[in-house]
Amino acid sequence: MKKIPEKLLLYKVSTNKDPESFGLLYDLYVEKIYRFIYFKVGNKQEAEDITSEVFLKVWDHINQDKELKSFSGLLYRIARNAVIDLYRSRAREPYILNIEDAYGVADKKNNWFEQIDLKADVRLIAETLEKLKQEYKEVVTLRYIEELEIAEIAEIMDKKKVAVRVTLHRAIKKLKELLN
């Protein structure tokens, strides 16, 4: 359940196209979106670029009077698509045959946990997380790091809530196996 001030900001943004309110929403979400993207791309510069692009796309979406069911859902969905676009652009690089390979390349290069100061057990989790397949990694990140509701994750991933729960359960199970 979102707090009333956030809902009020959303109302002002969606009905009045109020830039100041959008700025306040930016303040609320910028870190989360940045982190979500950073975990995926493992690159600070790319994470910043994609974060800027995400907020601008969200504003365009609102400015076009398109339906806004969930602001956070929209943000994460756009962020997710932006990351996929990045993977695709990497996949188009010479000698890379398909997107799956591109994901693999991206994941192999994504050692973000090595660049920050983490406790040993947390670092182990982060390292293991990177070994999960993209879908599992994403659902675990959204649920336990970004602490989103199942419904929000379902909207972001364009899945049913039941499917999200199942995926999450399998992801945690896989994570356990890898940790053991």
């Binding site: 700025g23 950073y38 800027s52 920050i116």
Partner: peptide
């Protein structure tokens, strides 16, 4: 334990630079 450690990642030093956040905000607005 896994979940708790995952949550700790959120509070780790994985965040944007304050200066970038401010400048990006200004540019965005």
């Amino acid at each position: 334990d896994i979940i708790n450690n995952l949550k700790k990642l959120k509070h780790s030093d994985v965040g944007p630079d304050k200066s970038w956040v401010a400048s990006n905000r200004e540019l965005l607005l």
